[in-house]
Design a protein around this nucleic acid. Structure first.
Length: 548
RNA sequence: GCCCCCAUCGUCUAGAGGCCUAGGACGCCACCCUUUCAAGGUGGAGAUCACCGGUUCGAAUCCGGUUGGGGGUACCA
């Protein structure tokens, strides 16, 4: 066993003779130019090549937690030069669907997390020497391994029915005993087995757990020991209908795919002894384990659809971008140790260290994600942002919230004024949708700035209309519009802000918009005049008389 | 119930026995910038490091216990 940071001395430096002895410091605390090889290597120096996997089950859309596990596996693989494998656990035919499978694969591709072996790689055909990479195609293998376990008496047929087991469980519950399989079928004689079979009972296959304590050194959690008596008795590895079960398929596949490190959620920590027992029974090397902290609902329970938005697809649909989601997910449970926190995927690969993953669960904080998303939107090159924005504008058009779809040049011209104002790409319609609507609805009350009355507003809009008309279509630029309007305000003794607000509401129907003059230019000369006319008409007609 | 894991501002975290009167970020508040909204800048509030003991000259950090939280406990994954 390689030492972990929770080894008996509590000091990781003992395995690193290059460290000066008196001061025990991590490479993060003192990242000198001559820094030693990352501790990663000492953790993974086993002879086995590094091979990690993510094994999603297509029984639902891509979950945030799966995305995070995938990311950590990916970072570890890329950091160490290992191989990253994707395999589909699609044995649960009743709940699995091809649509979910597509959602998961698409989502992972969208995040930019590439794998080296899998049922499809980068959208191309299956690749890898250890396939098939979908469980539904591995049945012969499970049957073969199950037969081996049976032949070696490491597993035995169990004829108990679901009802019988349920009764046992209820009994245990009533007597306040931990639920546990009694082992009724553990030592059946051949005659007894024959009798059950004659009854027409189908047998499930149970694995003999045995006695003792299973210990392992988790890369993140340190030394863990669990007594086999806490495992609930001999567990089923193949159902009576022949379907192999999770713990079993998982181990069989990890063996077949030569997985060296199992990096997964903490919810599997308690199941790990079962897996280790299986590896042992099959005489196979046991991989290193790293159990990641869970992502939590605001009430600190395991993140669930009930209490949180868990589908990656929903985040995509709202306009979160991959850079932000990847960045955010990496920071849930891991920190670089520096004060930087904006990282690209490649930068994460350079800095990631499985050993410094935090141990406690982390509440998913959407506001922080949105902030990061805004940071990333501002960093995207303008042309790229046009590409990313287009689908969201198309969605606005389809939904009938805008009346025409702007061309790429038009979107491109909007970029400077929207990129600082978008927490989400999906906010684009709300931000500048008024540019692409034929008419905007006007609330006469909001047309009148606080310090003004309706008459002043009407008069100001008429004057502003004249000034803008005077600028003319040809020189209709922000720099041409602003000075004469400021002059107008000065001449009439109006606060520029009030004048501009009246124009803003008249032209856009809103009190909050991107900078006014750029907005008017984006709107266009004719449309601006038209909207000013409509606004003037919307104000009380006698307003003009009152000011006279 | 039993087993396992965990515990630093509301949230994400830094912290590896003296550098900690605990740092950063999100969010919140104020101010600056400013035509609105953002963005950006500056400042502020916000953590008796869950609690109690112990080890030590010295503990957020090491040890034990308590409490609290979470996860697991299927012929689900």
């Amino acid at each position: 066993m390689t030492p972990t940071r929770r080894s008996s001395t509590g000091c990781r430096c003992e395995s690193r003779p290059w460290m000066p002895p008196p001061r025990c410091r991590s490479r993060r605390a003192r990242p000198g130019p001559e820094r030693p090889p990352p501790t990663l290597w000492s953790m993974t120096k086993s002879e086995r090549p590094i091979r990690v996997r993510i094994a999603p089950s297509p029984t639902g859309p891509l979950h945030i937690g799966t995305a995070r596990s995938t990311l950590f596996n990916y970072l570890f693989a890329r950091r160490t030069g290992g191989t990253f494998i994707l395999r589909l656990e699609d044995t649960d035919a009743a709940r699995s669907s091809i649509a979910y499978e597509k959602d998961i694969l698409d989502g992972l591709h969208w995040l930019g997390l590439t794998w080296d072996e899998g049922p499809e790689v980068a959208g191309e055909a299956a690749r890898g020497l250890f396939g098939p990479y979908r469980q539904s195609q591995r049945m012969p293998r499970y049957a073969e391994v199950a037969a081996r376990l049976l032949a070696a008496d490491r597993a035995y047929p169990c004829y108990c029915t679901a009802e019988e087991l349920e009764a046992e469980r209820a009994q245990a519950e009533a007597e306040h005993r931990p639920p546990r399989y009694s082992g009724r079928c553990a030592n059946l004689t051949p005659a007894e087995r024959a009798a059950f079979q004659a009854e027409g009972r189908a047998a499930a296959l149970r694995f003999r757990v045995g006695e003792g304590i299973v210990a392992f050194d988790d890369i993140i959690r340190g030394h863990v020991e669990i007594g086999t008596d806490a495992l609930g008795g001999d567990f089923v590895i193949v159902r009576a209908d022949g379907g192999p079960l999770f713990h079993f398929t998982n181990v069989v596949d990890d063996i077949a795919m030569k997985i060296s490190h199992v990096i997964r959620g903490e919810d599997h920590l308690s199941n790990t002894p079962k897996h280790i027992l299986l590896f042992r029974a099959l005489g196979e090397p046991i991989p290193q384990f790293a159990h990641l902290p869970l992502i939590l609902n605001p009430d600190r329970t395991k993140m669930s659809k009930r209490r949180s938005q868990t589908a990656v697809g929903d985040y995509i649909a709202q306009g979160f971008i991959r850079e932000a989601l990847v960045n955010y997910l990496a920071l849930l449970g891991w920190a670089s140790g520096t004060e930087e926190e904006i990282f690209t995927l490649d930068e994460l690969v350079e800095r990631f260290d499985l050993e410094t993953v935090h141990k406690a669960g982390a509440v998913f904080d959407r506001e922080r994600l949105e902030w990061l998303n805004g940071q990333w939107i501002r960093r995207i090159p303008p042309d790229e942002l046009v590409e990313r924005l287009r689908p969201f504008l198309e969605a606005e058009a389809v939904a009938g919230r805008i009346d025409r779809m702007p061309g790429d040049d038009e979107i491109r011209s909007l970029v400077p004024m929207v990129r600082e104002r978008l927490p989400l790409l999906g906010a684009i319609g709300d931000l500048v949708g008024f540019l692409f609507q034929d008419e905007v609805s006007l609330d006469p009350a909001s047309l009148v700035p606080k310090r003004w009355d309706a008459a002043t507003a009407a008069e100001a809009l008429r004057a502003a209309r004249a000034v803008i008309a005077d600028v003319g279509r040809v020189s209709y630029e922000a720099d041409e519009i602003e000075p004469p309007l400021r002059r107008l305000a000065e001449e009439r003794g109006w606060k520029p802000g009030d004048l501009f607000m009246a124009i803003r509401v008249a032209a856009t129907g809103r009190t909050a918009t991107p900078p006014l003059f750029d907005t008017l230019v984006a709107l266009g000369y004719e449309r601006t005049l038209h909207r000013l006319d409509r606004a003037i008409a919307a104000l009380p007609a006698q307003g003009a008389a009152a000011t006279a």
